[in-house]
Write a protein that binds this DNA or RNA. Structure first.
Lengths: 146, 146
DNA sequence: CTCATTTGGTTGAAAGTTGAATTAGTTGCC
DNA sequence: GGCAACTAATTCAACTTTCAACCAAATGAG
């Protein structure tokens, strides 16, 4: 439990530091994740639900954030022809520029704050550990049948 | 960066799962941390500022949460005789019971969701890694001279 | 076809969080 | 003692997140 506690603290500090580093680009980690995922999608457009799922935010939160980011001119919504309930989130040119500008700094920040302090072996070990944790979480989730 | 991404996702899922497990006790991880720290203090009382610091929450957030937990009857505030600006956060009997009741479940939950999926060697490795990360973060923080 | 159910997504209100401003009390220095 | 600088904690306003309610479209069983 002691190790656990210090893990919690360290990981929180890490996330906080990364968030602070991103603030210069008017982004939070959550928004960054949304934009990063969107920018990886074909044509940089994706259905709202899917984007919410892979960016790990709730549907309603995504709706709200999209409104903000839309106002900032980074994204836009387009209705879906084949399913009139649905919408696509589409990244604008401006949004693309913003994320392209932020990404290298963010990557640097991850390196500085984290990756550079790990040996290659550590990195592999860590990846393995969290893979295992995640797959167990998924199994538990399924077992709880939600 | 790929390993990093999957670390982020796994760790977020982990925290979410733990939070969900605590919800049955009407607690969030943050509140739990505050109460846990407070219950470790001598006489289960501590100055607000110190509590905020070691529980990793902002002073204003602690103020707000304390108001909520005070209403729930878990804590109470006492003014400090020697420094009239200051207050002590004091855990009530009811609060003590609440945390004593929640703790084993939480510990179980940490085990189930995380620790049990790690070998002893993994645990040591992880502790070492995050110790290093944290001490580097602290150094960077100091270097930034804040 | 039709009606109940499910799904995609939004909305508004309530709750939570943040950071700056504020209040009150303390300290150190001349 | 008097005053500037500092600290403890709370409050305020702006913003974000959550939760539940909602709407509209799609699905599917009878």
């Amino acid at each position: 439990m002691k190790a656990w506690r210090s893990y919690i603290i360290a990981s929180r500090r890490l996330l906080d530091a990364l968030d602070a580093d991103l603030a210069g680009h008017d982004l939070t980690m959550a928004d960054y994740e949304v934009l990063a995922q969107l920018s990886d999608a074909p044509d940089r457009r994706m259905r709202m639900s899917e984007l919410a799922k892979i960016a790990m935010v709730s549907k309603s939160r995504l709706s709200h954030r999209m409104k903000v980011m839309e106002k900032a001119g980074w994204v836009r919504r387009e209705e879906c022809e084949s399913d009139k309930r649905g919408y696509f989130a589409v990244m604008t040119e401006k949004g693309w520029k913003a994320i392209v500008k932020a990404a290298p700094d963010h990557v640097d920040s991850v390196r500085n704050r984290f990756v550079d302090h790990l040996t290659v072996k550590d990195q592999e070990e860590l990846a393995k550990i969290f893979d295992r944790v995640q797959s167990n979480l998924r199994d538990q989730y399924i077992a709880e049948d939600k």
